Amino acid sequence: MRHTSVDRADVRDMLVVHEAFRQSYSRIPALVREVSPGDVRRAEVIADHAQLIEEFLHLHHKGEDELLWPKLLERAGDRLGTAVTLLESQHEEIAALLTESSLRLAAWRAQPSKASGEELANSLERLDALLTEHLAIEEKDVLPIVPEYVTAKEWHQLGDHAINGLPKSKLPIVFGMLASLADPDVVKLMLSTAPLVPRLIMPVLGPKAYARHARRVYGSA
């Protein structure tokens, strides 16, 4: 079941999402370790950021499990080999690490000590390592053939699933984060199925919201 070039999924937006996850998880462990013991206010800032990325990753993988893998296995199973099976298995491992890091994040947020911070940072580093491997496999073995078997409409449903699951107050931050990593035409792609008002205002609100967020989290925009 292949599609015309006009109707094909454009996977460039997912590459941007992947890069956002890679950059975020490569930096969060160090942010945790830099928090002074007992500094609850700073721990709250980092914990809120980590929780937002965690929620986004969970929704991203849930969307793939429900809306992407079944279609690919049905339509292109002979071309995928064991790639999707491996990716599904890694989703389960990542989910377990997310659960572990979430519990440690809650404990550290409430009482940021050197010991609890180190446990959390170690957990996040294991998550980062597995996620980096997972994203590389997906980009090498799966995404290149997606446009042949998934329509643009189906692809946008996948992206909308993650966005619609996030708290509305956090959408400008997430959009701004993605826009900071994307070419202008990919930003337009990400907004192409949004209602008119968000499509018009998000390019203005998103970068400003993310710049404020980044200053709080990283110390600079």
Rank of each mutant, 00 (worst) to 15 (best):
90 Q>S: 06
141 D>A: 10
64 E>S: 08
97 L>T: 05
76 A>Y: 05
176 G>H: 01
147 P>L: 03
100 E>K: 03
95 A>F: 02
177 M>N: 13
138 E>L: 05
148 E>F: 07
153 K>S: 14
69 W>A: 02
79 R>H: 13
93 E>H: 09
92 E>I: 10
147 P>Y: 01
155 W>S: 02
132 T>I: 06
122 N>Y: 00
82 T>D: 15
144 P>F: 04
119 E>F: 09
57 L>V: 02
82 T>L: 15
177 M>Y: 12
97 L>V: 06
57 L>I: 02
124 L>M: 04
147 P>G: 05
144 P>D: 05
173 I>V: 15
161 H>S: 06
158 L>Q: 00
169 S>P: 06
60 H>K: 01
140 K>C: 09
107 A>H: 07
94 I>G: 03
156 H>R: 11
146 V>T: 09
137 I>N: 07
59 L>V: 00
167 P>N: 08
67 L>W: 03
75 R>E: 12
61 H>W: 04
124 L>Q: 00
123 S>E: 08
86 L>N: 10
137 I>C: 10
109 R>G: 08
99 T>V: 11
170 K>Q: 09
58 H>I: 13
172 P>Q: 03
100 E>S: 04
104 R>Y: 15
99 T>L: 11
99 T>W: 10
79 R>Q: 13
60 H>M: 00
97 L>W: 08
102 S>F: 12
124 L>K: 00
128 D>K: 14
84 V>I: 15
165 G>E: 02
134 H>E: 00
79 R>E: 15
168 K>V: 12
